[in-house]
Design a binder for these strands. Structure first.
Length: 587
RNA sequence: GGUCUCGUAGCUCAGCUGGAUAGAGCAGCUGACUUCUAAUCAGCAGGUCACAGGUUCGAACCCUGUCGGGAUCACCA
């Protein structure tokens, strides 16, 4: 049994024995002792005052004595007000360290037999990925890694919104103004090229609107919009020419997205295309009508009444019989279950769709879907710039590719100034810079809890000092460097019996790692792992600064510290991997 | 207007199911490289945890209300 559990059980028994009162071990609060105090773990004794009918310090005294006597690894204690600080034996720690070092993947849970499908990214195909997508992708990827580590069989999917009026707009503008331009002929990435024509469309539409307004006909539709609508109709009619154009331009976009995903380090097990799924869901509506879950209005439109769930009425089928977004999502959910028979579903989608997902989940529940209880909307806040929201109309959208370029460029500059990797061959240097730059960007985004709207300053995004990706990488690189210098090492760790506070601090941190992963799973929150990695790196830096490893005072101390270093390095690397961050060979 | 959500240092953010004197980083000031990598470490300064009540031995955290920011409430996707 692990130490915090031993303490809880011990306290539970002590309370029973001393005060004839039963407390469940799970209700007992055990936390790491704060640094300013002596001890490793702290029990809060206030909750027992009623049962004991004594002052907290007196209770702490009695509990402390009981624990020291009955729990093997508790060696001593001290009391500050109502807090009982326990000192864990040194032999426990050296045992713990050896155990962790012996594990192939510390923190990894064995398969739990459950499958979870996580949907993320899900872009439109009319323009390239931007800052908001980066947050989405990093959250999705990171969450999928965390779930995998927690023992789930994870399937990563996205649904690509490859049809609709917005794509037609890009297509139309390309036809009108493109002169046959292609990614090859222009040297542009496909998604950027298509994005360029989306902008061109909007410029033209604006121009026409202005002209109409001038002529006093502001209620008229601009002809270019009419044309776009017509194109959409042709698309739906399977017009061969429109379809061909559509396929060609979508192809450009997809290959552009692929490049971006690869650079970001994310991937998918399966792609769903809306062009293939948008007709799904109607069967479900029919079935729901039969079961009287939905009702039909006089005009033929189909609705669901969710007033009892405080969600109002919601349209699920238009009066002309065509589907709405909700219809498709119902269909896609069913399709996905058919494909994967998953136990859980996670949708990584921005918080502007909170309401949509509440309704969707409720409808699926009403329809009696077996998986309805295990749907989760991983909702995240918008990414804003210091000057406010990103507006594509105002050209303030931060492009994903540009941002990655910039961040790597800055890492390169910094690195060259320091000259730490100057002797590496060019390709390896490049790889180091890539890892550092991306780490800065990724950490910056993922350290904020998902739900919060975050402010992203591109200039400061490449934080390299303080709480940053490179800071954590640096600790890992240092640790690896020491291990390399140490050459062959081994030796009896248990012979070292007087760990310093910095060493104990590290061990307590390491011990927390599996719990942190569990918390991240429970809360669907990768930022917990990010913050943990930073804390661990910080502790290691302090240890590294204060204590000699290779020139330790004894062989036993040296072995112990090297083993500790190895465990820290592995844990840091593991935590960073969960965030999609790689450790460079040097920096 | 209804619903949801956020409000913690000049700025960006932590703060686990209520527990010790509310913590980091950046920015500002001060120290530490002949030592295992100074992308580091140590220190100073910076707070009415939006506000007001309530519950509790104990509240940044729970409840109620108020004020501010954001989102959403489409036969749009």
């Amino acid at each position: 049994m692990e130490i915090t559990q031993l303490i809880k059980v011990g306290v539970s028994k002590a309370v029973e024995a001393l005060y004839q009162h039963s407390v469940s071990a799970t209700d007992i609060l055990v936390s790491a002792t704060r640094k300013e105090f002596e001890g490793d773990y702290t029990v809060v004794v206030f909750p027992f005052t009623k049962a004991a009918r004594k002052a907290p310090p007196a209770i702490a005294e009695e509990l402390g004595n009981y624990l020291v006597e009955h729990v093997e690894d508790i060696e001593a204690f001290n009391i500050i007000k109502g807090f009982l600080n326990l000192v864990v034996s040194n032999s426990y720690w050296s045992k713990f360290l050896s155990e962790v070092a012996g594990q192939e993947q510390y923190g990894k849970h064995p398969d739990n037999g459950e499958r979870v499908v996580i949907e993320y990214s899900s872009p439109n195909t009319n323009k390239p990925l931007h800052l908001g997508h980066i947050r989405n992708n990093l959250l999705g990827w990171s969450m999928s890694q965390i779930l995998t580590t927690a023992g789930y069989d994870v399937k990563r999917v996205q649904i690509i919104n490859d049809r609709g009026i917005h794509i037609c707009k890009s297509m139309l503008a390309w036809q009108k103004f493109g002169n046959g331009e292609t990614p090859e002929s222009s040297g542009m990435k496909g998604d950027h090229l298509v994005g360029k024509y989306y902008v061109a469309y909007n410029t033209e539409e604006k121009k026409q609107k202005a002209a109409l307004a001038e002529a006093g006909k502001e209620d008229d539709e601009p002809t270019i919009l009419t044309e776009a609508r017509e194109m959409l109709l042709k698309w739906e009619d399977n017009d061969p020419e429109v379809r061909k154009l559509w396929e060609m331009m979508n192809g450009w976009v997809f290959s552009g997205f692929d490049t971006t995903y690869k650079r970001l380090g994310v991937s998918f097990d399966k792609l769903y295309y809306e062009s293939q799924t948008y007709l799904l869901g109607k069967d479900a509506i029919d079935a729901g009508l039969e079961k009287k879950i939905f009702y039909t209005k006089e005009d033929g439109s189909v609705w669901i009444d969710l007033e009892d769930a405080k969600l109002d009425h919601k349209l699920v089928l238009r009066s002309d019989g065509t589907s709405v977004y909700m219809t498709q999502d119902i269909g896609t959910a069913q399709e996905r279950f058919k494909d994967y028979k998953m136990d859980k579903s996670v949708y990584v989608v921005g918080n502007e769709q909170d309401h949509h997902f509440k309704v969707l989940f409720k409808i699926l529940e009403r329809l009696g879907a077996s998986y309805a209880d295990n749907l989760y909307h991983l909702s995240y806040g918008m990414v804003e710039l210091p000057e406010g929201k990103m507006k594509s109309r105002e050209g303030t959208v931060v492009d994903a590719d540009d941002l990655m370029d910039e961040v790597v460029q800055i890492a390169k500059q910094e690195s060259e100034e320091r000259g730490d990797v100057a002797d590496l061959p060019a390709d390896r240097k490049q790889e180091v810079w890539r890892r550092i730059g991306l780490a800065a960007l990724k950490y910056h985004m993922i350290r904020v809890s998902p739900r919060k709207t975050m402010v992203f300053d591109p200039k400061e995004s490449v934080d390299i000092q303080g709480q940053s990706g490179p800071f954590i990488q640096y600790s890992a690189v240092r640790a690896n460097s020491v291990l390399k210098k140490a050459g062959d090492w081994g030796g009896d760790v248990s012979a070292y019996s007087t760990p310093e506070s910095q060493e104990k601090d590290l061990m307590v941190m390491i011990k927390r790692y599996p719990d942190v992963i569990q918390e991240a799973v429970k809360n669907y929150d990768p930022s917990l792992v990010g913050n943990y990695a930073y804390e661990l790196a910080k502790s290691y830096n302090k240890f590294y600064h204060d204590i000699r490893i290779l020139k330790a005072e004894s062989e036993a101390a040296k072995s112990f510290r090297l083993l500790l270093t190895q465990v820290v390095s592995r844990t840091l690397e593991s935590a960073l991997t969960l965030l999609g961050i790689e450790v460079p060979e040097r920096m």
